[in-house]
């Protein structure tokens, strides 16, 4: 019997949703298990880091890593898995673009600690204890992973071969990616394994979208009774469908929610957030400076909204000092 290809899964800074998305394969997962050997999957299998270290270079056919790079442990595991895998696939928005966790880059490391370990009203920390990478407890030296200055995408740490976008990706995309690996029909290296057109292309509301949209005020869903059968943008609701890669089956739209952009930018777009700001600005209906400011002010938390999934990978990068560019 020929040897089955080896597959590994790993998670870095993530919410667990991407792991769930693998489980969402439901009975299809049996077909995957049938076809491959899962050699490493911390959430499901008790395989130690040392077991991975003991594997040969390139022994794993493909590793799917989800989550962003937040602590040095993520970084070293990413390097280790890169070394052991023929293909390294960024799985989900955080590994792909930084994801929601990379919104932390709008705050400095010290501010994050102060907030979490001191300022949050439910936190009592009279001794003023803050995380450190090493400490001595009862005579034993304990080591914790170091907390990096910034959140990084997977490809800012190691070379990534493919990307499965989404927060989380759909089970269909994951299955399709794994099948493409097994059947050796992957596209050009570096590709994002989803559609190449924006969500609008497959949006069920696209027929209701007019040729000209003019927005006097950006509205939020709770503010008025909107029509679920009409394009969100046409009703003044921020929908990032035009600026977001398709391939998600319009899940949010189907659930009466506008697109928040988790599949990331299209191939030709350098910075999803900037593009979102630029395209939304083009819909604003005013030439008066004051009115323009009023209209743009009706977009709550624009940076958080436009860069919700892509801050680490963006040109904006965030507030954090020490962001190197090359």
């Amino acid at each position: 019997m020929p040897k089955k290809p080896k597959i590994a899964f790993y998670w870095c800074s993530s919410c667990g949703g991407c792991e769930e998305s693998i489980l969402d394969l439901a009975e299809d997962i049996l077909a995957v298990v049938e076809a491959v050997d899962i050699v490493f999957w911390p959430v499901a299998l008790d395989v130690k880091y040392k077991d991975v270290a003991a594997m040969g270079d390139g022994e794993i056919t493909a590793t799917l890593i989800n989550g962003a790079i937040r602590i040095d442990e993520h970084e070293s595991m990413a390097r280790l898995l890169r070394q052991k895998s023929k293909l390294l696939i960024a799985h989900g928005s955080c590994a792909h673009l930084g994801g929601v966790v990379s919104l932390a880059n709008f705050s400095e490391r010290e501010d994050i600690f102060t907030r979490l370990y001191s300022d949050v009203p439910t936190v009592k920390n009279p001794q003023g204890l803050f995380p450190k990478s090493g400490t001595i407890d009862s005579g034993n030296y304990l080591e914790l992973p170091g907390f990096n200055d910034t959140v990084k995408t997977l490809d800012q740490v190691v070379e990534v071969d493919y990307y499965i976008p989404g927060c989380p990706p759909t089970p269909e995309l994951i299955k399709e990616a794994i099948m493409a690996v097994l059947e050796d029909r992957l596209p050009e290296r570096g590709a994002v394994l989803a559609e190449s057109k924006a969500l609008c292309h497959t949006c069920p509301l696209k027929e209701s979208k007019p040729e000209t949209i003019r927005i006097k005020k950006f509205k939020r869903l709770y503010e008025f009774e909107w029509d679920p059968s009409r394009c969100f943008l046409e009703q003044g609701i921020v929908c990032l469908g035009p600026v977001t890669r398709g391939g998600c089956n319009a899940r949010c739209i189907g659930a009466n929610m506008p697109c928040s952009g988790c599949f990331g930018p299209l191939d030709n777009v350098t910075d999803q957030g900037a593009k979102a700001a630029s395209f939304l600005a083009s819909l604003i209906d005013s030439t008066d400076e004051e009115e323009l400011q009023r209209i743009t002010a009706s977009i709550p938390d624009p940076a958080g909204l436009f860069y919700r999934y892509s801050l680490a990978s963006s040109m904006l990068k965030g507030k954090v000092a020490g962001n190197k560019s090359d």
């Binding site: 924006a198 609008c200 292309h201 979208k209 949209i213 030709n268 395209f279």
Partner: peptide, 15 residues
């Protein structure tokens, strides 16, 4: 325009 990659979102038309 690369028509093969256009999503048909129509943003450009009115502008």
């Amino acid at each position: 325009i690369d028509e093969g990659l256009c999503s048909g979102c129509k943003t450009c038309i009115g502008l």
